[in-house]
């Protein structure tokens, strides 16, 4: 197969390989190609000296130019600050409503808000903001502490049951666990709450629970069960349930009186970022 014989037509030696009767000429490479090959090796050697290249056991060769991707990131972040300067300055002075009404500012705030939300809020509320059991859905029209721009901004600032001095705070008692109500009363109340949301319930249990509701629950959830956003007391008449909609879920909530914690973000973000985040959440919740 590999007989290196010259080709009759050109007189050029062949590679000696044959494929279906076709042989390949072994024309010489141009010499400049060889020089480029050596030049490439020289460039590689120079690169090792100038740039970070070889890994060591604990470190790596740093290169005499001092190039560092980490340093580049710092520079790029500072450049970003400069680039955002003008928009960020307008964000500082504009009110939340003005930001949402101005198309340009709103687009900027949404972009900033989205990235901040993804880095900080998505852990609990999900990347799309729909939450999970025990974590509020930020995309619907149901708000524990109010869904206006100001309300959302304030909630982000101070948190819920956080260590901020002005934190939003309320605590539902653990009626069952702390033996404030009997097990039968908790079961009756469960039926009452089911009835409040417009679902069929045990009428006798509802009747028995009515006076209990009037003494124990009405202060926060209101006489008709529509809740109170000032205290973060959820509306019991709608179809949205933070801790689940089944009888077992509702029973467990009355028994244990669970309440989640959201940290205050005031120390973490500058005021412009807080505003952007509030506008982003408000806009994507359909805007109340």
């Amino acid at each position: 197969m590999s007989k290196r014989e010259p080709d009759e037509v050109t007189g050029v030696e062949t590679t000696g390989h044959e494929w279906d009767g076709i042989r390949e000429l072994d024309n010489p490479l141009p010499r400049w190609w060889l020089y480029m090959f050596w030049a490439g090796i020289v460039v590689a050697a120079v690169y090792w000296v100038l740039m970070p290249a070889w890994p060591g056991v604990r470190s790596y060769t740093q290169g005499v130019l001092g190039q560092s991707d980490r340093a580049d990131v710092v520079v790029a972040l500072n450049d970003l600050k400069t680039l955002r300067g003008a928009q960020a300055a307008r964000l500082k002075t504009a009110s939340l409503e003005e930001i949402e009404r101005d198309p340009e500012l709103q687009a900027y705030a949404q972009a900033v808000g989205q990235s901040v939300f993804g880095d900080n809020c998505a852990t609990c509320h999900g990347t799309g903001g729909v939450g999970a059991k025990g974590y509020a859905n930020l995309r619907d029209d149901v708000w524990l502490w109010g869904g206006s721009l100001e309300d959302i901004h304030h909630t982000i600032e101070v948190g819920i049951r956080s260590d901020h001095p002005q934190t939003r705070f309320s605590q539902m008692p653990a009626f069952g666990r702390d033996q404030m109500l009997s097990a039968a009363e908790v079961s009756d109340l469960t039926e009452y709450v089911v009835a409040l949301s417009g679902r069929p319930a045990n009428a006798a249990a509802v009747r028995r629970a009515a006076p209990v509701y009037q003494t124990q629950c009405v202060a926060c959830h209101g006489p008709t069960g529509t809740g109170d956003q000032k205290q973060g007391a959820p509306n019991l008449t709608d179809q949205e349930w933070l801790y689940g909609s089944t009888r077992a879920d509702i029973h467990a909530q009355i028994w244990n009186g669970r309440g989640g914690v959201m940290p205050s973000w005031k120390a973490r973000f500058d005021p412009e970022t807080l505003k952007a985040l509030a506008v982003y959440i408000h806009a994507n919740a359909g805007g109340q």
């Binding site: 619907d140 029209d141 709608d238 949205e240």
Partner: peptide, 10 residues
């Protein structure tokens, strides 16, 4: 895409 839809209170 996320969320594909949101159910409201009513």
């Amino acid at each position: 895409r996320n969320p594909v839809f949101v159910r409201l209170h009513d």
